[in-house]
Amino acid sequence: MILIPCPWCGPRNVSEFRYADEAKVRPDPNATTPERWRTYLYMRDNPAGWTTEKWFHRAGCRRYFTLERDTVSNAVRAAEASREV
């Protein structure tokens, strides 16, 4: 079981969290096309390697945050934006 570094609570067991999808940008709902919108809804990059994900600390602070995870090794680190802060 991997440890997830919650930016608010510190490292906790992954069982306290819910995976909340790949981090991605919601298209402008008033200017989108069916193709672009459905890509946003249904398509995932799912790379072998580092990927940026949203996680929800369900059994903790109940904050959503982004996290980088290596899907091959399961190594995790704070998302780039948070790391710079």
Partner: peptide
């Protein structure tokens, strides 16, 4: 509740 928090916190 999680749905609302997701929209408030991320969007």
């Amino acid at each position: 509740w999680e749905w609302i928090e997701s929209w408030l916190q991320t969007e």
